[in-house]
């Protein structure tokens, strides 16, 4: 049974420990939210795929979380490999998490050269008046990094606000950008995944 494979795009979450990357991941995965920083709630969770259909073309977004490696150590460079997009996350109640973004950006452009990069201000429910990080500061940041940033979003994992919109927008940008690329993907250029024997016969023999 030949099925057309929906193109899958790896998207990675980047940013400081505690800005809400796992919360974004949890919202994406099963649309839940927990307040406590509870390692157990993400234990064993690695990445998760969901199909989006912007402009009538199916695209599978595969979102990856860091596994908390950034807490004390650095993230492995292999986390970035094969990523088509990266979401740079900071939190509105923590200006330091915003000001350190250039460091994370550097990691992305080093290890995931071709990834499209998006900026996400999380915890928008905690924005004070006046805000600790203003819109113009965010615009400035994008200008400073030579317009590498393809989109800016404000989200709140607590209320769920802005998340669906963010992923839909990212999906539609990736569809447009990758339209030709996906079609041209040849086996020559790419390696293969190793899969257990039994799965090989199936058409969608992808283990993830």
């Amino acid at each position: 049974m030949a099925t057309i494979r929906v193109p899958e795009q790896k998207i990675i979450l980047c940013g400081e420990y505690g800005v809400g990357k796992s919360s974004i991941f949890r919202r994406f995965t099963n649309n839940t939210f927990v307040t406590a920083t509870d390692r157990k709630s993400t234990l064993g969770l690695d990445h998760c795929s969901k199909i989006f259909s912007p402009s009538d073309r199916d695209l599978k977004l595969q979102l990856w979380d860091t596994g908390g490696m950034e807490r004390v150590a650095s993230i492995t460079s292999s986390y970035y490999k094969f990523a088509e997009a990266a979401i740079l996350v900071f939190s509105f109640d923590n200006p330091a998490s915003f000001h350190v973004l250039s460091q994370h950006l550097l990691d992305i452009v080093t290890y995931a050269e071709n990834a499209k990069i998006f900026l996400c201000g999380n915890k928008s429910d905690l924005i004070e008046e006046p805000p600790q990080i203003t819109d113009s500061e965010m615009d400035n940041f994008c200008e400073q990094c030579h317009n590498l940033i393809s989109g800016i979003y404000k989200t709140s994992c607590k209320t769920g606000e802005g998340l669906e919109e963010m992923f839909v927008d990212i999906a539609s940008q990736l569809v447009n950008m990758n339209r030709s690329k996906i079609e041209l993907q040849s086996i020559e250029q790419h390696g293969f995944k190793i899969v257990p024997y039994e799965e090989e016969s199936q058409d969608d023999g992808c283990i993830c």
Binding site: T66, G68, R71, S74, T76
Partner: peptide, 13 residues
């Protein structure tokens, strides 16, 4: 290493 981290391992370099 990622597998270990995903299952709760703590990393220090």
């Amino acid at each position: 290493a990622r597998l270990s981290a995903i299952y709760g391992g703590t990393y220090m370099l």
